[in-house]
Design a protein around this nucleic acid. Sequence first.
DNA 1: AGCAGTACCTGGTTGC
DNA 2: TGCAACCAGGTACTGC
Length: 275
Amino acid sequence: MPELPEVETTRRGIAPYVVGRRVTGVLLRRPNLRWPIPPEITALLPGQRIDAVERRAKYLLLHTEAGSALLHLGMTGVLRVLPPDAPVGRHDHVDIALERTSTQAPRILRFTDPRRFGCLLWQPPGTIHERLARLGPEPLTDAFDGDLLWRRSRGRTAAVKLFLMDNAIVVGVGNIYASEALFRAGVDPRKPAGSISRARYARLAAEVKHLLAWAIERGGTTLRDFLAPDGAPGYFFRELMVYGRTGEPCRVCGTPIRQVTLGQRSTFWCPRCQR
DNA sequence: AGCAGTACCTGGTTGC
DNA sequence: TGCAACCAGGTACTGC
């Protein structure tokens, strides 16, 4: 399940193989993922040079002069750089073929996604795709801080965990990181967002930044086996404080971790450490 | 506007 | 053993 750190790790992993390189072809094995894949991609992308690979929220953007391909990995999406003759699996939905260069053999950028929650979209030059237009700030920039959370939460009654996962407030905080950050900040995930103090939000924002930055750093281990068929890292599971630990003792105080459903999502917290 | 509920999708796990 | 039910979860949509 790619969270923001894994998307960023993917970006860093593919960048050396794709930036500055020309696309020689696009193969769509199915017409839709989460949404229909814009058919113009197969006409516009071939022949284009990829100038940059950017990440915005959990989207990866391949920028070219003709426009930008937007890839979202959904829950189970994987993007890999492979030899052109790599065997095709059942869930290999898109191949973007990359030219041979003086230093690199021909490659394909392959998008694999068993559950098909991911998507491939197209953004014409000079425009911002509708799906990106109303997103909140990146969590690892200065635009995101405790004051932002505090200001935007005034008067809001939804649980603070749902507020933290709202993409219009801040992007990239998925279910796992929301539970973990709230634990580290000592905040009960069920509390109304509008009831949390400014100081507590400062702590929460800092914990979100810390967790994501730490995970991106650790994601570097994924890079090494980037070309492997499945680089499921599992790097953070050993270190989780509350996520998936229902009934197990809190790593800080020993109180059994509790679980509740908020917004149809499993939420984990320590009733003693989080108030 | 904010918020709760629902749908999408399929591999893996659980229960009978 | 075989099959059904359920779960995971980011995102967008609907309806109150």
